[in-house]
Design a protein around this nucleic acid. Structure first.
Lengths: 229, 229
DNA sequence: CTGTATTTGTCCGTATGTATG
DNA sequence: GCATACATACGGACAAATACA
């Protein structure tokens, strides 16, 4: 037979497309897939592994195979590994990542402020306050930070941007994990989040842009002063 | 033994990290990897499949296994499949993608113009001219378009941005493949590229921003008028 | 709670395709 | 053409997880 592995994966994708399946929908069992695509179980399993890595399919042990959520988990995996691999290498990956995150958030200033919403504003302010409280107690506030940046993008209704934001945040958190956080940087970060909320509620684009820049200033400083730590 | 699949992949990644390997460096053979991580060939092969999908490892049939190029191929795969899956669904994915591309290019206006370079300017102008010529002959100019947008980002020296630009362009080309191109849209697109070059050489940020917006105007229009075709 | 059936996970043995010398 | 080393493919057997009667 000699079906290429790539072709097996392609046929499974075709199966999903032709049957108009969506995330969560069940796929045939491995045995049925073998018969359907005309390959051995090993080959089918390897193709499924490839598709699983891309979150195109999702496998539950002892239960079945399903269409995946089509998240950007693969991007996170890929970028974090790059960050870990080039750790000696100047924090270059993190530096590049910060520029991307800042560019996207600043570039979307207009649309974000245009899609302003009172409910969102309340939630943002609440999160910023929580971050201040936790920081005062010397606790970490990474969960609130993640939620904050996601909430900022949510009103846009652009799912790709939301997922990219989440993915970049995740990579940042993993790659920057070793960066020490001085009390001053923490204070600066907390203040920046409050400034962002204020700019959003005031509808002030330039203030928003400045606040985003201030938000990333501590990391940028840290990256400049000592790449190799 | 019962090693989780995920752990096998993790151990292979650890191997790469601990041995300070980089793209192109050879990995042990399958048999050696089996002994190293303590798993069967099947399990190791499936783990390798996962890592291959992320371009963390690269396999050459009959030759060996190597560290991959760490490209964003997985992102392209993932996003294109999403686009194909929701094709009926309003071209929503393409619409979101256009906003991301435009945001990044406009948001980087400052840094791009700051990193201006005569050599780049000449190449950009050359590409824009080629596009005009090919358009006049009714030919496609997608290769020149891709090169143009990559060249625009190159002076930044941010490899992540370069790869994201390439990935987004690739997804756009695949997902928008069915979009018909009216002669007027083509003319508009060609003009936009010349306007971008002019703005870059003049160092005019607002002109650059306007040119980028004009560049994506035809697609946006097409997306608005008829989602389902 | 206890089997039992179904489904995925792991392993092994063997044969085949592919590149190198 | 041949030998070697490697990845690829196949089929069968058993283990582990889940669901259900």
């Amino acid at each position: 037979m000699m079906l290429r592995q790539h072709e097996v994966a392609e046929r499974i994708k075709q199966y999903i497309l032709q049957n108009r399946l969506g995330p969560g929908d069940p796929l045939p069992t491995e045995a049925e897939l073998c018969a359907a695509v005309g390959a051995s179980r090993s080959s089918v399993r390897e193709a499924i592994k490839t598709l699983t890595a891309l979150d195109i399919v999702e496998v539950r042990h002892g239960h079945g195979t399903y269409v995946g959520r089509l998240s950007l988990a693969a991007l996170v995996e890929s970028l974090t590994f790059r960050g870990l691999l080039s750790r000696s290498d100047d924090f270059r990956v993190l530096s590049e990542l910060v520029q991307v995150r800042q560019t996207i958030e600043q570039g979307l200033a207009g649309p974000i402020l245009a899609a302003f919403d009172d409910g969102i504003h309340g939630e943002l302010l609440d999160l910023a306050d929580q971050m201040a409280e936790r920081a005062a107690r010397g606790e970490s506030f990474i969960d609130q930070d993640r939620e904050f940046h996601l909430l900022l993008m949510e009103p846009l209704g652009n799912e790709l941007i939301t997922q990219l934001t989440a993915a970049f945040w995740d990579v940042h958190a993993i790659v920057a994990h070793t960066l020490d956080t001085s009390p001053e940087s923490v204070r600066e970060t907390v203040e920046a989040h409050h400034a962002i909320v204020a700019a959003v509620s005031a509808g002030d684009v330039t203030a928003f842009t400045r606040a985003i820049e201030a938000h990333y200033a501590p990391v940028r400083r840290r990256l400049q002063e000592g790449p190799g730590r």
